[in-house]
Every structure is written in structure tokens, then in C-alpha cells.
């Protein structure tokens, strides 16, 4: 790993974190429960990307394992939401 690539990886990780900050807004006030859940899923996949980038930007290589676990398990809450928790009109279309 040479120096310029590590710098670039950290820069891209910072950019993805800025994206997550914007997605936090959708998670906090998206009009339906599904919109909040989609923001949470975006946090999962972007978080996987950030972890891999951090592993190359000076972090320990074990972070790749963390990213693997995150990619596997972040989807479980999405499936649980769709199958069990989204029951309908309770929070629909409020505070748009």
C-alpha cells in the first residue's frame, strides 16, 4: 500500500461519511416507516464501504472481517422489518 492510495482511501471514506450525514436526515424524518428503514439499509452498505476503506487507510486488516459481518447482518433487520414489523398505516404520511 503506497502513500497516495491510502490518502485517497481516507478521502473517499470521508466523502461517504458526509453522504451518511445527509442520509441521517431521511432516517430522522422520512414520511413513512419504510423510508426510515431504507436509510438504515443505506447506512449498512455505506458503512461496509467505509470499513473496507479504513482497513486500507492505515487501520488494521481485521476491519475487512468486520465489513464482511456487517454486509451479512445489515440485511437481517431489513428482512425483519418487511416481514414482521411494517404493519401499515400507523405512521403513514406524517410530518412530510
Amino acid at each position: 500500500m503506497n502513500f497516495t492510495s491510502a490518502e485517497l482511501a481516507l478521502a473517499v471514506a470521508l466523502f461517504l461519511l458526509v453522504n451518511l450525514g445527509a442520509a441521517l436526515w431521511r432516517a430522522a424524518r422520512g414520511p413513512t416507516p419504510a423510508d426510515r428503514m431504507l436509510a438504515a439499509l443505506l447506512f449498512g452498505s455505506t458503512g461496509t464501504g467505509i470499513l473496507v476503506l479504513l482497513a486500507f487507510a492505515g487501520g488494521s486488516p481485521a476491519l475487512v472481517d468486520v465489513a464482511l459481518t456487517l454486509a451479512l447482518l445489515a440485511a437481517i433487520s431489513g428482512i425483519a422489518f418487511a416481514q414482521r414489523a411494517w404493519l401499515g398505516k400507523v405512521e403513514e404520511d406524517d410530518a412530510a
Binding site: A40, G44, T69, L72, L73, S77, A85
Partner: peptide, 10 residues
């Protein structure tokens, strides 16, 4: 992220 989220949603 995985287990607690699914359990709390349920």
C-alpha cells in the same frame, strides 16, 4: 446492527 435491530423490530 444485526440481532438487536431485528429483535426490537419484532
Amino acid at each position: 446492527a444485526g440481532l438487536t435491530g431485528a429483535l426490537l423490530l419484532d
